[in-house]
Design a protein around this nucleic acid. Structure first.
Lengths: 229, 229
DNA sequence: AGTTATTTGTGTAAAAACTACACTTTTAAG
DNA sequence: CTTAAAAGTGTAGTTTTTACACAAATAACT
């Protein structure tokens, strides 16, 4: 058998991060101008190489932190990309990760020292290597996730209106949803607290603000469900 | 930035294959007695190392072929496992793949020259490294796949009875299904051809044999659906 | 002070999907 | 000819999903 360790080839293992955010303009991803060759100066996912003494999950967190200053972001592994020439310099396999984060909560850090920038998904630039494909796959995964787990805590501000939540789901699914049906389905999950307080910025009438009920939200995260929107 | 290629660590990249089969006894997986150290002689998933000039999908196919003689098996990538000491000899990241195959069609090859063996999922032995975890994850994925794609072509013989199909789904989902409801849901997919011919082996009355309508089956593979069983 | 314009908030009826459930048919074996 | 074993088949009740429209609130304007 050829299968001895010594005869096996070693390769570089990269991690690339698809970071989703959401604001008034819709669903966004976080990109950086690549600061080393090749493709220096081109737009790219946030990425880096796995270290010998590091698991992939930690590498993803470290790499994200390096480029954005973000801490404690939970990321999920997506897929390993292995086309021979995906990186022209050296054989590199890349494992993609994705995360959802709240743009407002994290923007201060970004603006301070880092070069990462948010792009609306619709008008994101062409990315290096196979990063556009990674983004597409991450969007598919995000849509799937939407159908089996609640989404929101990560992407919305602490207090939000039903409209914001609706628009978040519409952005993720890229389709229009019926307002009344959406509200009743979301309410049936019982993960929201309706506040007394209203947001008067968005309309004359004002709209009630909600928060996520953290305990119930976490509980729903553990157990999958089916949410047909 | 630390991010130069030359300073990055290289690692071994393995591929491990979870091969599902199905027969009278239920859902099975294919295992081998590992033929090299460490853990030589222990039961293991079929696995090997990625070569420098090979993509992961091809590595999975090659490795499966090496240990079983099987050709043309379509495998799907699952997940990259990267615990530091998952392999005690050397830092190795392993990407798992899974496939569904028809035991009868492929057994002749196996018996001839190879050492792989089928085990019922329920009484599979303890596996080396993190392979048991890989199997568990593959089962979860298989269940999910069942809800969005038709399953059968790969696992059943050319001609099969409704009972066989039902039992396949029951084995995958590990739950009992209502016969009549199952049949009507499957029929609504319109992927089966009902033959004139009956299988007289399983009962006095005999039961009609079916084949998959290959075109419609492939079509359904492309477009996800939701199948609530 | 009254009018206007804008967004919020709310319920229902019809259609579709899902579930639970039992008896007759067929024929090989004895 | 009787028996035994599995196949095959339909429906009514329930739940879920869908489509759909108008009144309420108030800030902005005149």
């Amino acid at each position: 058998m050829l299968n001895s360790y010594s005869s096996a080839d070693k390769v570089l293992l990269a991690v690339d991060c698809i970071i989703f955010g959401f604001d008034l303009e819709g669903l966004k991803i976080l990109l950086i101008k690549r600061d080393f060759e090749p493709e220096k100066g081109k737009w790219s996912l946030i990425g880096g190489f796995l270290k010998r003494d590091e698991v992939l999950d930690d590498a993803a967190i470290r790499i994200l932190n390096t480029y954005t200053g973000f801490n404690d972001i939970y990321m999920e592994q997506l897929y390993a990309y292995s086309e021979i020439d995906r990186d022209p310099v050296e054989r590199t396999i890349s494992v993609s990760y994705y995360a959802l984060i709240n743009i407002e909560n994290h923007n201060a850090e970004l603006i301070k020292n880092y070069h990462a920038q948010w792009f609306s998904i619709a008008d994101a630039p062409h990315l290096i290597f196979d990063h556009n494909e990674m983004v597409q796959q991450a969007i598919r995964r995000l849509r799937y996730r939407t159908s089996i787990k609640p989404i929101g805590f990560e992407l919305l501000p602490e207090k939000f209106t039903m409209r914001q939540l609706l628009e978040l789901y519409e952005a993720i699914l890229s389709k229009e949803l019926d307002k009344r049906n959406f509200i009743s389905k979301i309410n049936s999950l019982e993960i929201l607290n309706k506040l007394e307080e209203k947001d008067m910025a968005s309309s004359r009438k004002g709209s009630y603000l909600y928060t996520f009920n953290k305990e119930k939200y976490e509980e729903k995260l553990l157990n999958d469900f089916v949410l047909n929107l």
